[in-house]
Design a protein around this nucleic acid. Structure first.
Lengths: 201, 201, 201, 201
DNA sequence: CATGAATGAGGCTTCATTCAT
DNA sequence: GATGAATGAAGCCTCATTCAT
C-alpha cells in the first residue's frame, strides 16, 4: 500500500482522486470506505473533507472528468479521418487504445452509474449518449453512402461498442496480444460486421 | 412494490431469492440491506436467517444457479446443430434470447463478481470460463475447417460475447426491435465478422 | 450512574425515555449524545434504534407526551371549580404543583422547542397555545364579570404563566418553602395582581 | 443574511460578537458551529482564532458583558428613585425596557448557562444573583416599611422577575401593545401583587 | 418458523482546534 | 491578520448477525 504521509497542498486532491479511482475500481463505490481511502492517501478521514464535499461528489467528479476527456479525445482522433471507413477505423483504434489505457475510469463509468444521484446520473448518461452518437453517425453515413450494410444503426453501434469496451475486462498489458494487435483484429471484425454483404452468400 | 406479507412454508425461500435478485440488480449487492430484503419479502430481518445462512450465501446461490442453468441450456441448444456455421448461429440465438429473458441474473453475474468471497469467486469464474470455451471451440473448429477467419479465437470470442451480452444493457421488451430481429442482425454481424474475407477486398 | 445492564423487552423503551428526559434536562438536546444515553440505559448505541427511530423522534415523543398529560390534567383540575376566582385559584394550584412535580419535562418543553423540526415544532406550540388559552379564558371571563381588572388578557396571562412557571428554575424540594406555601404565596400575588383596584388608590 | 465579507481590522471582533450573539440566540450554543459563525462574518474558520481563544470563551464574553451592562444600567436607573414604590416602579420599567431592547442577550443568558464551564458558570450566576438582590432588597424594604405585603421576599422576587423576563418570549415590536403599555400593565400588576391586602377581603 | 431485541463494528460526516505559509 | 489544510474525536445512524422466546 503506497502511503504518502502528510501530503500537503494541492497534491492531496490529486492523491485522493488517484486512490479513489483505484479503490472504486477494485471494490466498488459502495464497498470503498472513506476510512480506506484516507488510509491510502495517508491522511485522516476527516481531512478528506477539505478536498471533497461528499463521497458521492468524489464519484461524480471522477466520472465527469473521464467522460469529458473521452469525448474531447475522440473528437481530436476523428478530426483527421476522411472517408467513412477511415472514420470507423479511427473510432475503433481510438476506443480500444483509450479503453486499455484508462480501463479503470471506463469500468467504473459503467459499473457505478447506479450509485449516482439522479441528477448526476443524468449528466453522465447524457455525456455517454453524446459519445455513442458519434459512432451511430458514422454507421448511418456509411449506410447512406451504400458502403455499410443498413439496419438499425443504433443497435449495431451498441453491439460494436460492447465488443470494443469488453477489452477492459480481459486485456492484460503483457498478455498474448498487444494493444495494436487487438486493434487490428477488432478493426477487421468490425469492418466485416458492417460490410454490406450477406454471410449466406 | 410487490410485497408477499407473511409468506409461509417453503415458498418463503423462493420469495427471498426472487426479491434478492431484483434488489441486487437494482441497487447492487453492497447497497442492498437485509432490512430492505426482509421488508420486500414481508418478514422480519431475523427471519431471513431461517432460510439463508449469510448474505454472501444468498448472492452465491443466485449466481451459481444462474451459471448452471446457463451452461445446461446452452448444451441443449447446441445439441441439434450440425455444421460449424449452424453451431455459431445457434450460439448467438441462444445467448441473446437467454440474456434478454434473464437479464437480471446475467447482469449481477458480471457486476457482483467482485463481491464474492475468493472461494465463491473461483467457482463462478470457472463456470463462466466453461461457457466461454464453448464459443472458443466453435471458432477454432471453424478456423480449422477454413470456414472462419483465423486469428486469436479467444480474443474474437471475448469480443463476440461482449457484443451479444450488451443486449442486457439496452434491450427494451417493447422497443424498436424485437428479440428475433436483434438476433437476426447480430447473427449477420457475427458471421460476417468471423468470415474469412478481408474488408479491403 | 444507574445502569440497568441487559434490560430487555418493553422495559427498555421506558428506561430510554426516563434517561433521555434526565440527560436532555441536564445537558440539553444538542449536547446529549446517544452514546451517553445508551450508556445510561446499559445498552449499545445501535440498540437504541430498536426503540426510537431517531434522536429527534425521542425528543418529540417526550414533549408531546408531556403536553398531552399537562392539558388532560389541567382539564381535570378545573372540572370542579365553580366561580371565576375559584377557577383561577385552581389553575395556579395545578400549574405550580405540576411544574414542581415534573420540572424536567416542563423545562425541556421550553428550552428545546428550537431543536424541533418545523413540523414537530408546530404540534408542540399548538398544544401550548391550547394550554395558555385556558388561562386567558379565565381572565377574560373574570373581566367580563367585573371581578378582575380589564386590560390585555393575553399579556396578563403570559406574565402570570411566566411567574408560575419560574418555579421550575428555583424550587428545591427541601428548600425554605414547601410547594403548598409557594402556591399560597403565588395565589395571593396572582389574585391581587388581577384584582380590579388601582395601587395608587 | 447580512454578511460582512472580508471585514478587516478591529471591526472583525465586533462582527464576530454580533453574529455570534445572533446565531447562539437562533440555534443555541451547541448547535452553532464555528464554520457557521465564520461564514456569517465572512472569514475562514481558522481566522476566528485570531480574535477569540475558544468557542467557550466567546460565549462567556457575551454573557459577562451582558450581565455587567445590565447591572450598571440598573443602578443608574434606580439612582434617582426615592420611595420604595418608586424604586419598584423604576425596577419594573427598567427591566422590561432592557429585556425588550436586548432580548437576545437576555435569552441566551438564561438558556446557555448550562453550556458554561463550571468556573464561568459561577461568575455569571454570581452576577445574576447580584441583580436579583436589588429587587429582593426593594421588596424587603417595602415590607419593613409596611407598604408591601410580607412573606418570602426572594420567592416573590423570583416570581416577579420571571413574569417580567417573560416579555422576551412573546413581545413583538409592532404587536398589539407597545413597550410602554406593557410596562404600565405590568407595573400595576406587580404593585398590586405585593400590596399588603388580602384578595379575600 | 417468525419475532423483536441485542450486539459490535463500521458507515459518512462535522466538529473545535492548531499551525505553517 | 487571514488562509487552507491537517488533526482526532465525536456525531447520528445502519449494518449483518445472533438468539431467547
Amino acid at each position: 500500500m503506497s502511503r504518502t504521509t502528510g501530503s500537503h497542498g494541492p497534491k492531496t486532491m490529486e492523491a485522493i482522486a488517484k486512490a479513489g479511482l483505484r479503490l472504486i475500481y477494485e471494490h466498488g463505490y459502495e464497498a470503498m470506505s472513506l476510512r480506506h481511502l484516507a488510509a491510502e492517501v495517508g491522511i485522516q478521514v476527516g481531512s478528506l473533507y477539505n478536498h471533497i464535499s461528499t463521497k458521492q461528489d468524489l464519484l461524480f467528479g471522477l466520472l465527469r472528468t473521464h467522460m469529458e476527456d473521452l469525448l474531447g479525445d475522440l473528437d481530436r482522433a476523428l478530426a483527421d479521418a476522411g472517408g467513412v471507413e477511415d472514420r470507423l477505423r479511427a473510432f475503433v483504434g481510438f476506443h480500444v487504445h483509450y479503453h486499455i489505457a484508462r480501463k479503470r475510469e471506463v469500468f467504473i463509468c459503467y459499473s457505478e452509474l447506479r450509485s449516482l444521484d439522479p441528477d448526476h446520473y443524468e449528466v453522465i448518461v447524457g455525456l455517454r449518449r453524446d459519445y455513442e452518437r458519434r459512432l451511430i453517425a458514422i454507421l448511418e453515413q456509411g449506410a447512406a453512402e451504400g458502403r455499410f450494410a443498413g439496419g438499425d444503426a443504433a443497435v449495431a453501434a451498441y453491439g460494436i461498442l460492447a465488443m470494443l469496451t469488453g477489452v477492459c475486462n480481459w486485456f492484460r498489458p503483457r498478455g498474448r496480444l498487444g494493444a495494436d494487435e487487438v486493434v487490428a483484429l477488432y478493426t477487421r471484425m468490425v469492418l466485416n460486421a458492417v460490410a454490406p454483404r450477406d454471410p449466406a452468400a
